[in-house]
Structures are given as structure tokens and as C-alpha cells.
Design a protein around this nucleic acid. Sequence first.
DNA 1: CATATGTCCTGAGAGC
DNA 2: TGCTCTCAGGACATAT
Length: 288
Amino acid sequence: MPELPEVETMRRGIACVTGAVIEAAERCRCSRRPIEIGPHWRGFRRRVEGRTITSVERVGKRVLLMLDEGVERIVIEPRMTGLVLLAAPPTREHLRLRLHLKSRGRTPDRPAELLYWDRRGLGLVRVVDADEFGRRYGDAKLGPDALLATPEMLRDRLCASRRAIKVALLDQRAVAGIGNLYASEMLHRASIHPAMPCSKLRSADWELLSSAALEVLNDAIRYEGSTLSDGTYRNALNRSGGYQNHHRVYDRAGNSCPTCGAGVIERIVQSQRSTFYCPMCQPARKPR
DNA sequence: CATATGTCCTGAGAGC
DNA sequence: TGCTCTCAGGACATAT
């Protein structure tokens, strides 16, 4: 489930395509269902073929390939099982898109193709201009990147909400990049109960949450993301991430808490998604 | 407006 | 053993 750390790992993994020209875009017919490429495949090809990738960026949980003057850009949205790859994909049948790359000048290390692979096919790739980018991914749609969020930003954007803090952290309009896995992990590290209404958090909690978020996300990036037991997530070279070995609560129900050693990790369901937490580290009511 | 629910999809695992 | 069923959760559409 690519969240900010996995998508950032993808971005870094394919940064070496910067400067390459997209010679051809090929929608792979071997997939069960072709990837959704915005409205029109012909339009996609026309708009990307012959263009130069001038930088590789990330916005929330999406990878951006900036083209030429930076007006047009390819948005890659992996959602659940999407991968961006320079190496051979895990399976042939779920390969959705292939960008054939050409290098200008002496660039021996630059890969010849960039692949989009997606087992479940919920992800999408589209090309947008600056206007459409603003409409779809601008400030009205996405909050500040989670790596740049300060305690004040989190408090200002969430403190009026009656929602549980864990549910609110998944709202990309509040803060961009956090998903189901890292929401549990950062709340655990901040010692905040996941069901706590945002409006009940105090300023000390926002401080704790902000620093916990940075620690968890940066640690996860350092380990190149989390490859869960289904093995889906891989980096651009088709290698597993390592942060799953450092999860303290996620998917660890019934295990003892690695932080306090006394609590037993519990699983609850919030908004039809699993949440994991330690009842000892994250009490529903804080002792004062 | 804020919040909640339903939808898409595939493969793993459970249960019989 | 092989079938059916449930579940996982990203973002968005629709409902309350």
C-alpha cells in the first residue's frame, strides 16, 4: 500500500530517468484490464511522446514526471498495488504501461524503459497541464506534505474536527501522504489513542504527533518502505523494502508491545480500516 | 458544510 | 482436494 515513504522511495529510485526523452508510450495488452490513462490513450501518447523528463517529483502519494518546460506532467498514482519499475516486473500479466526512453548525449547509466505495474489495477497514470494539476492536486485538494507539516499546521487543520485522530490523519486534504499503516505507527510513537477526537487533543499532543510523524516517515524512507506479507510493494529495482521489520504495532495484533513490553497490541476497525495500537502506551484517557 | 459509506480490483487465506 | 467466501485499503462518488 504505497504511502509517502514508498512513493518517495519510488521517486528516488527512478530519479535517474531525469533528462531522458520518452520515445514511445506502450499500453501493455498483456494486462487483464488496461491501465486508466486519463481520458484518452491517443491523447496521452501525443502529449508525452518526444517530450523530455526534466525532473521526478512527488506530491503526497503520487509520483510526478515533469515534462519539458514543466507545464505538462505525468502523474502516477499507485494506490494499492501500483509499482514504478526500472527492472523486470514481478509478473508479466500485470504490467500496464511501458515508457521507452532515449537518452541524448553520453548517458550510459540511464535506463531504456520505465514501467508501471499494478496487480489489482486500482492505480492510474495520467498526463495533466498546470491548470488541471492545480485543480486535482492543488492546495484545495491536498494539505501540506506530511514531511513538511509543523505542529501548528496539524493543529490548525485538524483541531476543529470531531473525527478520531487516526481517521483524520488519512484525509489527504488535511495532510498529504499518510495512509493506514503509518497513521497507526505514528500515533503509537506519539502515545495518542487512535480513537481520540481531534478536538480533544492538546497542544502537547500536536507537538508529539508532529515529531512522531517525521520520525516514522523518515525511518521508513531510510528503510525504503514497507513490504507487507503479501509481498506486493517493491522498489524501482524490484527489491523489498525493510521497514516492515521495524513496525511496532501495524499488523502485530496479539504481540507484546515492543516499546513498553507490557501491553498487548490490539486491532480495532475505524471507518472500515484496521487500526493497531498498544492500550498501555496509548491509553484512552491520559493520566495527568 | 462535515462526516460516513459504497465502489473499484485481485489474490491470499479461511472454512467446509 | 477444491470450492466459496471474506478481507486488504488507496481515492473518489454518492449519501446522510
